[in-house]
């Protein structure tokens, strides 16, 4: 029997404990694992349901059924997937290609502009710097959609809407990408200035410092920037909808698949939507998982240094 010591001093008491440390820890771990399994289930369930729904077909075996009421579709088949590639009203390949082209162009152009802006703001001190940063901060407080209204008309005059929407959208995505400099700038700020100084002493120009030293060192944030720039057009709805509206051939996947859910189409095309959704999610998710650590380091590093 362990005897519990009475008060040692008035304030430092040996308190009798309830359960030993080990037992408490085990109970805690069990609870934690249960919680995690529950959470994982809840998070994955909608995606699992999506995959199930995409295999739903009509009673007669053709693709394209309506919104399911049950977890498992009443009728199974791959016909809904086939619709994506065969139905002329659903030019999925076209949408996919459009989005891919836009993603590629945006990844290159937009990242370039963002990196240029963030590098300058991080490395150089010039007269209008503070003003520029504050000005862009204020500009960012306006809802982005406002600019689209004007841009639509301008692009229309240049012929970059409807059937020229791809070019127009690329322009919209990339032109102002300099404003998204925060995360990259935060990263550049962590590279010690003494590296630059050593290079200057060695005789390099600022341009050489930029592409010989800084860019290689900034590889993680470069990958993050390119990755997020690439992934943006796949998910963009607002701008794409506004600029390419009505011209089905110019839709990106988001607007295209959304159009399948409109009143007139949903009863016959919901499962096609699901199939399209799965096909879009797959490459994006795989790309994301492969480059996961860059995304994570970008988010955690830059997002919070603010």
């Amino acid at each position: 029997m362990r005897k519990v010591e009475k008060k040692v001093d008035q304030y430092d008491v040996y308190r009798p404990h309830k359960a030993s440390i080990k037992k408490r820890r085990l109970a805690g771990n069990i609870a934690a694992y249960t919680g995690l399994i529950l959470i994982s289930a809840v998070w994955l369930i909608p995606l699992v349901f999506l995959i199930f729904a995409s295999f739903g077909v009509n009673a007669d075996g053709t693709g394209g059924a309506g919104v399911p009421s049950t977890i498992f579709p009443e009728h199974w088949g791959v016909a809904s997937y086939v619709v994506l590639f065969t139905d002329s009203q659903v030019p999925f390949m076209r949408w996919f290609l459009n989005t891919f082209i836009m993603a590629l162009a945006t990844a290159i152009l937009s990242s370039a502009m963002t990196i240029m802006m963030s590098y300058v703001l991080s490395r150089f001190r010039f007269k209008g710097r503070r003003f520029m940063m504050n000005f862009m901060l204020v500009l960012g407080m306006f809802p982005g959609f406002l600019t689209t209204i004007v841009l639509y008309y301008v692009l229309k005059m240049l012929g970059l809407t409807q059937n020229g929407a791809i070019g127009g959208l690329i322009l919209v995505y990339c032109a102002s990408s300099g404003m998204g400099y925060y995360i990259s700038k935060g990263y550049f700020d962590t590279i010690p200035k003494s590296l630059d100084e050593a290079a200057y002493v060695d005789g390099a120009t600022k341009f050489q410092v930029f592409y010989k030293i800084m860019l290689p060192l900034a590889k993680p944030i470069l990958i993050y920037t390119v990755l997020t720039a690439f992934m943006a057009p796949w998910g963009d709805f607002v701008f794409a909808r506004y600029i390419s509206f009505g011209y089905s051939d110019s839709y990106n996947v988001a607007v295209g698949l959304w159009s399948l859910l409109q009143q007139d189409k949903i009863a016959n095309y919901f499962t096609v939507f699901c199939a399209g959704g799965v096909l879009v999610s797959l490459p994006v998710t795989i790309l994301f998982i492969c480059l996961q650590r860059y995304y994570v380091s970008g988010v955690t590093g830059g997002a919070v240094k603010g």
């Binding site: 959470i39 994982s40 998070w43 994955l44 909608p46 995606l47 349901f49 999506l50 729904a53 919104v67 399911p68 009421s69 049950t70 977890i71 796949w234 998910g235 709805f237 996947v253 988001a254 698949l257 959304w258 859910l261 919901f270 939507f273 699901c274 959704g277 879009v280 999610s281 994006v284 998710t285 790309l287 994301f288 998982i289 996961q292 994570v296």
Partner: peptide, 30 residues
């Protein structure tokens, strides 16, 4: 990683689907 997958799936896919899950005779009600 399980949680990160939900970031990777484009929002318009997951949101639109979830939206239909909660319709009057959608999956949740069933």
């Amino acid at each position: 990683t399980i949680l990160i997958i939900t970031i990777a799936v484009p929002q318009f896919v997951s949101l639109l689907f979830v939206s239909k899950m909660f319709t009057a005779n959608g999956i949740i009600n069933t």
